[in-house]
Design a binder for these strands. Structure first.
Lengths: 364, 364
DNA sequence: TTGTAGGCGTTATCAT
DNA sequence: ATGATAACGCCTACAA
């Protein structure tokens, strides 16, 4: 079957047919069965008006019955467009990332794009390999989410001559197109919320890798405190790594202070998770003794005990925006360079008015 | 540049070179510059021993300098293998799924495979489109994780003549190759744990869609109870949807009973999250008044308050196993048909010995 | 050790 | 409205 003895065997892959089928039907197989040339088949399948309605119908029927699927790889070779994008993430298992990816994938799919997913694990060498693979696959565009080592390979990307969109770029300025959240504003608002509840000893648990997002969030924290004329005390600024484990230790430090904070501003929700765990392990209560706020509004933020006050980052939406932007760029349109998304304060139950008893040592 | 005026312009895409480059260099461009034929370039780049060491070195140098990347699409067309796999998930934002995907992606990458990710959102029509896209991309293999509507499109998949591996197949028997967890055993063990703590009124919050995994987990619950001669009471068996929200309502029902349970066995960790939330909202305490157990051991299980006793499902490992299995199948080897992974009980702090006071109404 | 020729399955460009 | 023919970029014979 599918050999070249013209017309002799019209045997085409029928569902459940012979086991001896060697390959999927090609456009020529369909053409032979329909007794037309293969360009005609091509036209019919693309609903070109240039082909007789009746023959077109017949061709489509045959194609369907034989389970014919045009090869995207052959098409890609001639059209020089694969309708494929590459997506680089630092960790797909991270809840933030997976939400973003969900938004990207949905949008891509809706527009007929397939997406290659690659997880760098924040390993530069792996990122190199990924980019190389994307180049070889001839992707039409690339999205990179919160790369930690972006600067290392971004020059490489520029060689590929395909548009790139970054999400939560950690190296602003290096690239043009990006989607990002208002980090400064977000933390400022949530810190103001704490100040408004009477807190004066407000700690910040940041990230130790010096990311742009951490720098910005810390700036928001600082702004809110300075606006309230509260000094930013070095002993109240500690560092985790954006994950619960390290945040626990950071919180332990804070609680070992002679005057522990009455509230804690966390770099993200994962950090808040660890902070709350530490607080509970010290037999203290959230928010009665210490208020805690996060950033991201991950799914779990609604289900911690108590539910977490945090800053919502519209993750799926950001993925969608990045993809929509990339689609524009891929079709040659120039597009918005830098999309900044507004954060939103979500007040739940991990924050409360500061207790008098505890608050007496504030300000120093 | 890259036009056909032989040898006249050796201009190849140098990083940062002219903006007028129209396309990436092809193997012929490299051949022309190196003054060899393109098959020789091909051989050199594949480290074939058939090419003179010196020329090979020269070719590789030129290829590198011009940023040449062999086109996987052209190669795929001639070799009929794309070194690409398709991955269908029902929801990438689900923490369970994203862990599994992480394992798959890592393994695929290590073996030189690229992965297409597609999220069906549990929508049958979308799944159809996904499979069609995978067929057109000529993927070498497919992995499907916990499909809800698997039966609908699996026949379609079989037309594609590529190997398929299912993870946590919800339609056992329909397909050959799968990786799954020991559901019955897992829940039996965790339910026995509850029985061992003196619990007699043990509820089960299941899943309403009649998945195989729910059926099996319920069977484990039943086995443990029957072994302890505890009747399975219908009013203690309720249904959520595998997510916290619905589980809250299910737990509400349970708490409205005249004799509420002293322990709750949940279909998964997400369900447990909702159950605990409901319990807390009723002013009750876990585990003092009610013990709660989950299934999966998601990342968050360690950071709930109290930390959740659960059954560990080695998610990344399962993804890895599925991918390794698929790789074998793709290279023509026959492979293990059904891989069953052992669950592991993880005892944390959401379970405790039943209180006398509360326990007096047990057994009825 | 290297080069020539052919073909993979499409779409695009011409004719007719 | 349709067909013949030529790419697309690579690999694999086979020839030299």
């Amino acid at each position: 079957m599918f050999d070249d003895d013209k017309g002799k065997t019209d045997g085409v892959a029928q569902p459940g047919a012979s086991k001896r089928i060697l390959r999927q039907p090609s456009i020529k197989d369909i053409a032979r069965i329909a007794r037309v040339s293969h360009p005609t088949v091509s036209r019919a399948l693309q609903n070109s008006p240039l082909v007789n309605a009746k023959t077109a119908e017949r061709i489509r029927k045959i194609a369907k019955e034989s389970g014919y699927r045009a090869s995207a790889v052959a098409r890609g070779l001639v059209t020089r467009r694969t309708r494929t994008i590459g997506l680089v993430v630092t960790s797909i298992a991270d809840p933030f990332t997976s939400e973003v990816v969900s938004g990207i994938e949905q949008t891509a799919n809706d527009h007929g794009y397939s997406v290659y997913l690659a997880d760098s694990n924040a390993d530069p060498r792996r990122e190199q390999k990924i980019v190389q693979a994307f180049a070889e696959q001839r992707v039409d565009g690339i999205i990179v989410t919160s790369s930690r080592v972006g600067a290392l390979y971004l020059p490489l990307l520029s060689e590929m001559m395909v548009p790139i969109v970054l999400i939560n770029d950690q190296h602003p300025g290096a690239f043009v197109h990006s989607v990002m959240i208002g980090n400064v504003e977000g933390v400022r608002v949530v810190a103001e919320h704490l100040v408004g509840l009477g807190h004066r000893r407000i700690a910040y648990i940041g990230d130790q890798y010096g990311y742009q997002s951490d720098t910005e969030r810390f700036a928001g924290y600082r702004e809110a405190l300075e606006a309230a004329r509260i000094p930013v005390l070095p002993e109240l600024v500690v560092r985790g790594d954006g994950k619960p484990e390290a945040a626990m230790h950071a919180m332990d430090e804070l609680l070992a202070l002679s005057h522990p904070p009455t509230a804690v501003c966390c770099y993200n929700d994962m950090t808040a998770l660890g902070a709350m765990r530490s607080i509970h392990m010290h037999g203290l209560s959230v928010p009665d003794e210490i208020s805690v706020v996060g950033f991201d509004d991950l799914f779990v933020a609604s289900y911690t005990q108590p539910p977490l006050t945090t800053v919502r980052q519209p993750m799926r939406r950001m993925g969608q925006l990045a993809m929509e932007n990339l689609i524009k760029l891929m079709s040659g349109e120039e597009s918005v360079v830098r999309i900044k998304v507004k954060p939103e304060l979500v007040v739940r139950e991990s924050t409360a008015r500061v207790k008098k008893r505890y608050g007496k040592t504030a300000r120093r």
